[in-house]
């Protein structure tokens, strides 16, 4: 289990707003072949926080999440969990550190039932915890109703709920969410974000990648803006929401409304 994990000096580990840092990325460089997808990304997620990662398509948001959960190995830079170096640890081992990753496009096991998917989420544990199952079913009652249904036949929103529920079954302290609103109706998106808020209030830290910047910033405490593989802005969520550059680039509809009113 212990794969060359180095203890990091406590002082070097940055705290955010008095909260100890749960996840820290330091100067990450990630390549796809010859293409540099991340050009030195650094960010911090404090314990109990909701942090939003915004940016256009291809800015490197998903790549950042994948580097954090071990799906991609960075060429250089560091990934720290509670101050411990974890870069280079493969994803199936990294889940033991309490990372849950809800991948882009949901990717539920389509030929398994809802219940089987949830049990897969608890694969890292000796056996699924009934209390976790109850928690997922109380967060997403529709999953309880459809527990015997084959997941491929669920609606997009239900699949997203299942993907989140599946990740929760592994008892994550840090939940990485890649575009949970993708392709979903606005009503469903609101519902999912309300549940995410509840999950955070129950004590799980969230790092959220979103195209839907307005929705994400209303939930998040802080946010980072990525452009072509580098962090270009980071601030309190409320400050980003009112920042004219963010409004113009990522909150297009809000900017238009402002123009109409003006």
């Amino acid at each position: 289990m212990n794969v060359g994990v180095e203890k990091e000096a406590g002082a070097a580990s940055g705290a955010v707003d008095g909260r100890p840092a749960l996840l820290e990325l330091r100067d990450l460089h990630v390549f796809y072949g010859a293409i540099e997808a991340l050009k030195g990304v650094s960010l911090t997620v404090g314990e109990g926080e909701v942090v939003a990662l915004l940016g256009a398509n291809g800015a490197g948001k998903s790549t950042t999440l994948k580097a954090a959960s071990g799906m991609l190995a960075p060429r250089s830079g560091e990934v720290l969990l509670r101050g411990e170096r974890v870069d280079g640890i493969k994803s199936h081992e990294l889940v033991q550190f309490g990372i849950g990753h809800v991948p882009e496009g949901r990717r539920v096991f389509a030929r398994m039932t809802v219940l089987e998917n949830l049990k897969m989420g608890a694969y890292r544990l000796k056996r699924p915890d009934d209390a976790d199952l109850d928690r997922v079913f109380s967060l997403f009652p529709v999953l309880a109703e459809r527990r015997k249904q084959v997941s491929g036949t669920l609606s997009g929103g239900e699949q997203q709920m299942l993907a989140i529920g599946r990740a929760l079954m592994g008892k994550p302290e840090l939940l990485l969410l890649d575009e949970p609103s993708m392709g979903l109706a606005p009503l469903i998106v609101r519902q999912i974000f309300e549940i995410l808020k509840e999950i955070n209030e129950q004590g799980t830290t969230l790092l959220l990648v979103e195209q839907n910047a307005a929705q994400a910033l209303r939930l998040a405490h802080r946010g980072y803006v990525l452009e072509t593989g580098a962090v270009v802005m980071s601030d309190e969520a409320s400050a980003l929401l009112s920042d004219p550059r963010v409004r113009a680039a990522y909150l297009g509809e809000v900017a238009e409304q402002a123009e109409e009113k003006g």
Binding site: S69, M71, K90, S91, H92, E93, V95, Q96, H101, P103, R107, F109, A110, R111, M112, E116, K119, M120, G121, Y123, R124, R166, G170
Partner: peptide, 24 residues
């Protein structure tokens, strides 16, 4: 069995299976 669920998960989506802690 749990071993079987690992086999089925890898058959369907190895990348996501490893996110669940499955050693491919």
């Amino acid at each position: 069995t749990k071993m079987g669920s690992g086999i089925r998960a890898v058959a369907q989506d190895p990348e996501v299976a490893s996110l669940m802690g499955v050693d491919i």
